[in-house]
Design a protein around this nucleic acid. Sequence first.
DNA 1: GATTCATATTGTATAAAATACAATATGAAT
DNA 2: ATTCATATTGTATTTTATACAATATGAATC
Lengths: 245, 245
Amino acid sequence: MKNEIITYNPHVSVDCVVFGFDGEELKILLIERTLNDDAENFSDKKLPGSIIYEDEDLDSAATRILNELTGLKNIFLHQFKSFGDPKRTSNLRDKNWLEKTTKLKIGRIVTVGYVALIKIDRKIIFESENTTAHWYDVKSLANIQLAFDHNQIAGEALRYIRRSVMLEPFILFDLLPKKFTMTQLRNLYDIVLETKSDVRNFQKKMLQIEGLEPLEEVQKDVPYRAPRLYSFKKARRREGTKARM
Amino acid sequence: MKNEIITYNPHVSVDCVVFGFDGEELKILLIERTLNDDAENFSDKKLPGSIIYEDEDLDSAATRILNELTGLKNIFLHQFKSFGDPKRTSNLRDKNWLEKTTKLKIGRIVTVGYVALIKIDRKIIFESENTTAHWYDVKSLANIQLAFDHNQIAGEALRYIRRSVMLEPFILFDLLPKKFTMTQLRNLYDIVLETKSDVRNFQKKMLQIEGLEPLEEVQKDVPYRAPRLYSFKKARRREGTKARM
DNA sequence: GATTCATATTGTATAAAATACAATATGAAT
DNA sequence: ATTCATATTGTATTTTATACAATATGAATC
């Protein structure tokens, strides 16, 4: 709600792929898109994203738009890929929705993809004037038809995260609550990398990550032996371990 | 030289960071940019790149533009990052040059960065009506002021390549001639990753890459013991080695 | 309080990979 | 025959990865 006149750049957008983890499943944040038109009347899902302002950096646009659509603040968004198929906005339904919501004549839009790994209990405005947000199982993406090329974008985001985890496994801690169990960490790791880790070997390997510390505390309200909790005190983010020979 | 009328999309461009290796130094392909204006008169360097067509995929645009500017064909270009600082085209010199060469009114341009690793003896049109191309030491980039934000783009490309090599060292073979020596391979590896490999250990490690084969042939015209030549027969490109635990 | 249940926790032996380290070989040039 | 400049090669040690399952814990139930 600024006073200045804001000009849109209707040729470029950003889309945010936000991942969460509930201890069991990898989740993705999607928002509802509805159109009540003379011609059409539908509701489906899309990634949080929108066209940028004319005088705005891409990173800033991603941060702003994610905030506007979900209320999320202080999210570390990382650019991972841009998508520029000239036909990516030409589906009739997408076209109608765009022109209705932006009130601009929309031609082709190149979109810049951003990804974030967040704790699933971060405060999200799930219902607002403009949007409805929800967490969905990443698994279920195969069965949901998202707007535009958002299925493709989400897929690429996942592949990007996978590569990142191979180089810097500790980025997974961004997805876990402040206190978590080793089993949660292992589940997450195996879901992202599509592996099946051995319980003992995994434990050993993780405990040599600097910053991962066992707490004198166990999980509560479990109907069996309570697992120990761990926390991650981020050391400096290192730029991947440097290969040496 | 097509007959159809081609429409530009003056809001989006691609820039190509093409790396080569001469056995000693990592090289980058830059083209000359000159402007003879009433006001200004200068010549400097830039990455091969340009605005895209309105009806053109990003990947196709990168391929087309690299070809138009350097004659290079069948180059595997990989998108690595987009750059969208609203001020990235607002330097006066850059602005003048853009409007002169495109004959379009140019506002803000978001550019999509592509990277390629090629054999340095690939046929390049170094001189043409429009452009002059040259290989430059990547090292020397610190002392060359490129057009726009091209220094930044080249830097990001290098960091991108570094990460890729950590996951998939065999991409380095794209930079080497069909037959190369172990010393060349080691030099290249060490330049890209900024390491200093031990000669014996490096040899051992490389020889377990499937596809890397010693030839019954040695380098010629060397004034000392001739080193053995190797070649790389690309097995299937694998998507990084999958971590297992 | 003994038993069941469901999950947590832990160790050891073996194999593979990474590292540290320098003497000898080769072929051209003198 | 000697020099020169670089190529080639092995071994011992350390570190890391892997394979594998018995015991511990605490809550719930009888």
